[in-house]
């Protein structure tokens, strides 16, 4: 019965409900990211919730408009930025004379609690990587499912290739 057009894919009840809760979920995702050290949560969970917020918007508003709203380069930027921050902090510890990601050096050199080093990795590194990976995975899958977009997925698959090493990187960092 309903003829779907590209900008109005969901019932407006769902659309408006998503609009209302989106700021709350995004805030909550970022809150979790910032409270990884002393509460449940952290970069992984927080990043996932941030990613989920975007997926929710995509469900409600349609995937194409959301993709236009969040440009591919932006997502790639998030992911690579996360990797750069992660690497910089980790290598920074080596520069201070420790091992990769050895935060105890912070205490020795700058008199900062090691907790803040972990926080910085969680916030700057992991959350960005995870949210970027979730969003780009979703868009990549969605692009595969849409018949008339088969030719136009160059940007999305580019993101996908970028993601593979990042995902591995993120997994490794889980251990510390």
């Amino acid at each position: 019965m309903a003829d779907y057009d590209d900008t109005y894919t969901e019932s407006q009840v769902i659309m408006t409900a998503v609009k209302i809760i989106a700021p709350f979920t995004l805030t909550y995702g970022l809150f979790m990211t910032f409270h990884g050290g002393d509460a449940p949560g952290g970069g992984f969970q927080g990043g996932t919730i941030v990613g989920v917020t975007v997926l929710m918007l995509a469900f409600a508003f349609g995937i194409e408009p959301t993709r236009q709203w969040l440009r591919n380069s932006f997502i790639t930027g998030i992911v690579t930025g996360g990797v750069v921050i992660f690497g910089a902090i980790g290598l920074g510890m080596i520069a201070l004379g420790g091992e990769f990601l050895e935060f105890y050096k912070l205490k020795a050199v700058f008199d900062i609690k090691p907790k803040w080093g972990l926080e910085a990795v969680e916030i700057g590194g992991i959350s960005l990587i995870v949210s970027g990976v979730i969003i780009s995975l979703f868009f990549t899958m969605a692009a595969g499912f849409t018949p008339d977009r088969r030719s136009g997925t160059g940007g999305a698959s580019g993101v996908d290739i970028d993601d593979a090493p990042d995902a591995a990187n993120a997994e490794v960092s889980d251990d510390d």
Partner: peptide, 20 residues
């Protein structure tokens, strides 16, 4: 401090979405 930063991010990214 982080609340202000987060609220800033949320406001910039979602203000036009939430209050259309």
């Amino acid at each position: 401090v982080t609340g202000a930063a987060v609220a800033g991010i949320v406001a910039v990214s979602l203000a036009r979405v939430t209050f259309s």
